[in-house]
């Protein structure tokens, strides 16, 4: 069976209805285990004290803020190239989830930055590119809401998504490009020297898994809703035309 067969809304609804209970349950399990492990059972950092516990929220949310946009980019490209409606609706569904993840990353970053840097906010390359990514999410959601014709809305939001991808990449690599500012480098690295200590690393991995599964669950449910909303729109139009 080809992957493209799942672009059929009926097949997507059947498959996603099977996945959602499993992914939702696993998300809840991973989040509870990861956050309880990280918050209650890990020690303070020798430099950052107890603020290190914010890592279990900040890093997964920041990762998802960027990767949600990447997922929207892939779905938008599929829409632009192959005109599969489910992909356009999946991109639309991911927007609000992505913006909440970006907001969590910004807010938890401010609560972490205040005691560590002495300021809630700095015009640092990574923070600034994240703020611009947040504004792109706002624009993307507003554009979907502003255009009545769904295909035109999908076309224009896909173009916006392509443009915004520059900032999604920048917010990931800004620290490496400019090598300045307050924000540290990536917390997770294949280089053991640069990676966070194992005592923080393993609960962090569980939290990341929980956030990813929560994202998958929410995007699937929201895509189902968008498919139903489009069918409802079509039925209303038909009823109005008699």
């Amino acid at each position: 069976m080809s992957l493209w067969e799942y672009a059929n809304p009926a097949r997507f609804m059947v498959l996603s209805a099977r996945i959602v209970p499993v992914s939702g349950g696993l998300a809840a399990l991973c989040l509870v285990v990861g956050l309880v492990w990280g918050f209650f059972l890990t020690p303070d950092d020798y430099r950052q004290g107890s603020t290190v516990k914010i890592i279990y929220l900040h890093v997964p949310a920041a990762m998802l803020a960027i990767n949600a946009w990447v997922m929207m980019l892939v779905a938008s490209l599929i829409w632009l190239i192959r005109r599969h409606h489910v992909s356009a609706l999946a991109a639309r569904a991911a927007g609000p989830v992505g913006i909440v993840m970006t907001l969590i990353a910004l807010v938890t970053g401010a609560f972490w930055g205040q005691p560590m840097w002495g300021t809630w906010w700095a015009w640092d390359p990574r923070l600034t590119s994240f703020l611009i990514l947040f504004l792109f999410y706002l624009g993307y959601i507003a554009l979907w809401a502003a255009i009545e014709d769904p295909d035109t809305a999908a076309d224009l939001t896909s173009i916006l998504c392509l443009v915004g991808s520059v900032f999604a990449v920048l917010s990931r690599y800004a620290v490496n490009f400019w090598n300045q500012g307050l924000h540290q480098g990536a917390s997770l690295s294949l280089d053991k020297e640069k990676n966070v200590a194992d005592v923080f690393y393993f609960p962090l991995l569980v939290c990341i898994a929980g956030f990813v599964l929560l994202f998958v669950t929410l995007v699937l449910v929201r895509t189902q809703t968008e498919i139903r909303a489009r069918r409802l729109h079509a039925l209303n139009l038909r009823a109005r035309m008699g």
Binding site: F39, K53, L57, T108, F111, P115
Partner: peptide, 8 residues
Amino acid sequence: SVLSAYGA
């Protein structure tokens, strides 16, 4: 700071 981050 920590509890506010978790609460938010």
